[in-house]
Write a protein that binds this DNA or RNA. Structure first.
Lengths: 194, 194, 194, 194
DNA sequence: TATGAATGAGGGTTCATTCAT
DNA sequence: AATGAATGAACCCTCATTCAT
């Protein structure tokens, strides 16, 4: 219901900007309300509490993020290409959205455990996409069949996430998307020479 | 009767326990002082402020953590074995210290940027150890010579970190150390069948 | 039932009472809030910080004090009568307001330099009134033309201030306003017999 | 007893310097101890508490101040000259001792009521000296015999004190001692032309 | 006498949330 | 639906004083 309201969207977008500009701890509800052009109290007509705003930011933005990746990978023919596309889009979407990258990689991690768990819940479908690619790769005999799928998924996600975080913390000074083939190659072939 | 441990150590150890039990935001200085058996004011004879306690916890505990790994890996003969040992010890040390694992993987990440940057500073030597192993592997021709070392290091660290975080968030229900050969294998050989 | 006074005024009046009763250092913000019948946080909707309450008390109360004196003296015909009126009103206004007298003569002086300088700023117009009377007296040839005006103003203010402070410190046991003719006479004619 | 100890003196002198340099509220006991070259605890072998240090500073320094003035005035032949000498020495002693002037005129006034009352006790003898001069002047028929002596004393002290305070607050930019004849003249002859 | 490590009470201020309008 | 004034709980840190040595 609330997703259809324009104010809901106004507040979500204001929250991303405010958090990116002021940091997690500098983002008071009143500041978000001001940026969104609504009264403080209005926030509570659309969100249960402050944490709900943050979760909703993540749901909303990551929802789109994940959907884009899910759609794009589904159009590829094999697991190898799908993984490449996933990496490329993971990087390109965050590289294209400065504020969102700061919020997801740095600011939202400063939240309490409860929020972190809800964020993980939002990430579940993305992890599902990765799982699907790995499974498909095994079926296609492109990937080894002795791998622990959840573990592989963690490694892929951990590698991408750490790469993006480092890029953000280094003030986005280099070309993130350009790392795609290297990351893909390392995940596919590993580090070994043989 | 009295505790002979130096107060500095008492406070560090108390902080780990209190943070693990109450979470980052539930860890008031007074709670740490009480657990350490000292007065609130005594904390400030040994630490500049609350953030300094947290940084010191990380420096102290991670300092040992890193040193153990550095020593153990240096005793191995080649990069392959060194990487295996690094993974195994990374997992085993955190698996052996429940509270420390919670603090490093979950609670300390909820901190502000300033603290995060200090934490990264402490991690530098560990990243240096990983870099060293990768370089050595290339020299030994065990590892491919076309890999981007900082990227590889990020992927290794990201994979280990994500694996431990997931283990902690899943309430440590499975055997973390047992994942060592799988993680090692994936990093070394990648996911591909050929 | 509810108090219709604006909160700003409620807090100012509460502050005068609380400071007079508890002393400067015994006047916690929470005590002032309680006396004013508002929440602690409400104070900060009307005042920047605690010091701002104190400055505002002085501005508000002394503003009225000074205006009364300025108006009354302007209605007198010559500098001599104006000086008499100034002394009389200076004494009578403080004698009529027990709490205000304690606050201005004793408590507000226990403040830090920054507050003291702001208090001096508020007093400026009063010192200007005194200067004006002295100048007028010189023009009217009632007062000597060889006097240093700032010095004379300091002496007049110092004499009045010291007289009121002594009266307050002696628990207001005698008639302050009754001293008017003596103080006036001493300022006008000096101590000498010739 | 304690007055004979060198450490007592060391601490008193350190206190004057520390207060003049750091202000009343910036003068922690530990800072005074450090400046005096003794341990914090040693302070409490010579002084009951912090307030006692401050009272003792005033007793010690003002004791000398008053004694000098009492001696010098007693050597003059009539009340008129004695008053002149008192003003001159009041100004010159404070003008000669920058730190002491700051402490007596500004910093010590930021103290609580109890300390202020003790300071007044120390000032009593000085007020007695002024009283004596006024009485003598009346007896010598140099001064009017209809004046209220305590009031006159307040006015004299108030005038001198206000003059010195203004000089200190104006960063001692002009010649304080040079004001002596003007202040004397105003006190003796008043402001009137006749 | 002298030390200085240890104590612990005390308070200004912020900000998420509410509710009367 | 919308407002925004009002609420009040929560907490880090300082520093005068003590006391075991």
């Amino acid at each position: 219901m609330k997703n259809n309201k324009p104010k809901y969207k106004l507040i979500i977008d204001a929250a991303v900007d405010v958090i990116a500009e002021n940091g997690y701890h500098g983002s008071q509800v009143s500041k978000i309300a001001k940026k969104a052009g609504v009264a403080d109290g209005t926030i509570y007509l659309y969100f249960k509490n402050k944490e709900d705003i943050l979760v909703s930011v993540f749901e909303d933005k990551m929802g789109q993020f994940i959907e884009q990746i899910a759609t794009a990978t589904s159009e590829k023919d094999n697991a190898n290409e799908k993984l490449y596309t996933l990496i490329e889009m993971h990087f390109s979407q965050l590289a294209a959205n400065h504020h969102l990258a700061i919020v997801t990689q740095l600011e939202l991690r400063q939240s309490n455990l409860s929020l972190r768990q809800q964020i993980n819940r939002v990430l579940k479908p993305y992890l599902g996409v990765i799982d699907g690619i790995v499974k498909e790769g095994i079926e296609e005999k492109l990937f080894r069949n002795d791998i622990n799928i959840p573990l592989m998924r963690q490694m892929i996600f951990g590698a991408l996430d750490e790469t993006v975080t480092n890029w953000v913390m280094n003030e986005e000074k280099y070309d993130l998307v350009g790392l795609t083939p290297h990351v893909h190659s390392l995940l596919i072939k590993g580090i070994s020479t043989d």
